[in-house]
Nucleic acid binder design. Structure first.
Lengths: 329, 329
DNA sequence: ATGAAAGCGCTAACAG
DNA sequence: CTGTTAGCGCTTTCAT
């Protein structure tokens, strides 16, 4: 079903069909009428690919993610809400990830889509600073602060501090940290907040209590096992995100530890899964939907040639739920 | 940054660059080497649009949704998990919806992408039966059962019956129903289950107790107000999905009604939001992630030319939580 | 008012 | 082994 099929069926040239379909002037009303009928009858719809190859603008916004997991899908909901009704279409793309392109996937995805398929992009948790894409780009939870594209993120240091201070306030002294994706600024900042709070509470930093979790459940498993099998086991864990925190709790259960009686756990993000399980996770909430919406608005503004803020920071706040308690006596 | 730029910089023809990039035979090792260096230096990546226009296969699976909301994003998580590691890329597309294309969006999206951008598609809650797309298609929560593409859905009748029987068991007699999207088979089946259970319990069907909700919070508001303002107010509401159920609860609160003391509410779907609020919703759970994964597997099988089941039904089960109780005395 | 032709970036025959 | 050529579906001058 191509434009040629329509042209043939209507007895006109493809150029005429194109004009009719795109509402260009210079087509006789009668011809237009006939073409439209054929289009409707055949169910023809112009190919996004072909037209975007030729045109400059596609009216499509790309959302580049590594994977569709709770974090990115929350953002997606926010973006979808903000873009709805603007006439733009959304194209959320997750390129195939293999081990060798785990870093740099966003540059690849962007090159593949930019200039042709999408007019602008919001990139979720890029692993490298993406610049010179040729199209407007907003990064959410970016690789690094300034220098790169415009960004949206939450108060990572403040959130982490709130989490650790909560734990300290409960009486914990041996507080472990499961690190996030080390290529992300947010992970660095959360660890920084963790260290700052420890220092302020007069608790020495113990490198043995910090392990990588990579923001992923699978990467967290071993780290959690090691941490919870330590001779001098921590009484609390501050995980860099909810996925890690949730996995820490599972591992704790495997090891016969009760949460929060034997072990307190705090996460970060407040994805829906954090509060929908049997036990509700104490966590630092990022306003994910709003962050997505904000990023979309910024992109829309850039696309319109309008000015907009370049780096937006949103507040993060601690939500105390059921996985934290004073340490065992 | 196009293939011509690379060709020029490497001093070869575009054809040669194409061969190198796609790993075709017939290129001198030395030439290949040089081209690869230029590619790396320039950060060239082949355009998805241009190559898919020329090639037959793109290695991309399309997920067509009307909107990114909790239901579709849960499916997306399941699909993403199942497709990860297969080498396929995912492209979730949400076309611009206006009032006049609310029905039929999926046919439009499919026409725009099929044949060029995507090799196959899973369509979420299509409004019409999509056939003859020219590419393999699996529909989740389809417009209609057989006749159309292969499908995945849950036991809608059984789930609805379980919900209503639970309410009846609690002692409710005036049970209202907020309908789903009337163009969807699932909505029809849930209403059917509702009616059957009522009949079996010897409760007469009262048309005044059934209102449209369209599976959307916004569409539900007025219906809920009308229902809860009835002279002989229902003591329980079975909403066709969680989004509607959640909104019914909000409206109840606005009207000064307590849930579940004054009004019991049951939803359907068990999206994460159903159990993450202050009050956890009693609902009928569909295994959304699994449904997404199953649909992806079916599509992958079709793409491989392998056989697969044509219509998959997954179980639905009632989860009693905090929004249902016996009717007020 | 209509159509012929060029070209978007790329791949696949086919020559050389 | 390399380059020339045609063409994927579409839009856009430019003639007619």
């Amino acid at each position: 079903m191509t434009i040629s099929d329509v042209a043939r069926a209507a007895g006109v040239s493809v150029a005429t069909v194109s004009k009719v379909v795109n509402g260009r002037y210079g087509v006789a009303a009668e011809t237009s009428q006939r073409v439209l009928e054929v289009v409707a009858r055949l169910g023809y719809e112009t190919s996004l690919v072909a037209s975007s190859l030729r045109r400059r603008k596609t009216n499509v916004i790309g959302i580049l993610v590594a994977e569709f997991e709770p974090f990115s899908t929350e953002l997606l909901k926010g973006i979808s809400g903000a873009v709805g009704g603007t006439g733009y279409e959304l194209l959320a793309y997750s390129g195939a990830v293999s081990d060798d392109n785990r870093v740099g996937w966003e540059r690849r995805s962007l090159s593949r889509l930019a200039g042709t398929l999408i007019d602008g992009a919001v990139i979720v948790t890029p692993t490298v600073v993406v610049a010179g894409a040729g199209i407007p780009v907003v990064a959410i939870d970016p690789h690094t602060g300034p220098g790169g594209p415009w960004t949206v993120d939450a108060d990572n240091v403040g959130g982490a501090r709130a989490a650790v201070e909560h734990l300290v306030g409960l009486g914990h002294r041996r507080i472990a940290h499961v690190r996030g994706r080390t290529d992300l600024e947010s992970a660095r900042l959360r660890e920084q907040g963790y260290r700052e709070s420890l220092a302020e509470a007069g608790i020495g930093f113990d490198p043995a209590l910090v392990r990588d979790g990579g923001y992923r459940a699978s990467r967290t498993t071993d780290s959690a096992r090691e941490l919870l099998s330590l001779p001098d086991r921590p009484t609390a864990v501050f995980a860099a995100n909810d996925l890690s925190a949730l996995r820490v709790i599972e591992v704790a259960h495997e090891l016969g530890l009760r949460v929060p009686q034997d072990l307190s756990v705090v996460g970060f993000d407040d994805i829906p899964e954090a509060s929908s399980g049997d036990q509700r996770l104490t966590t630092v909430a990022q306003p994910l939907r709003q962050m997505g919406a904000r990023a979309a608005q910024m992109l829309l503004a850039m696309l319109d040639g309008a000015g907009t803020e370049e780096h937006v920071h949103m507040p993060a706040r601690l939500i105390v739920r059921e996985t934290t308690a004073p340490p065992p006596a």
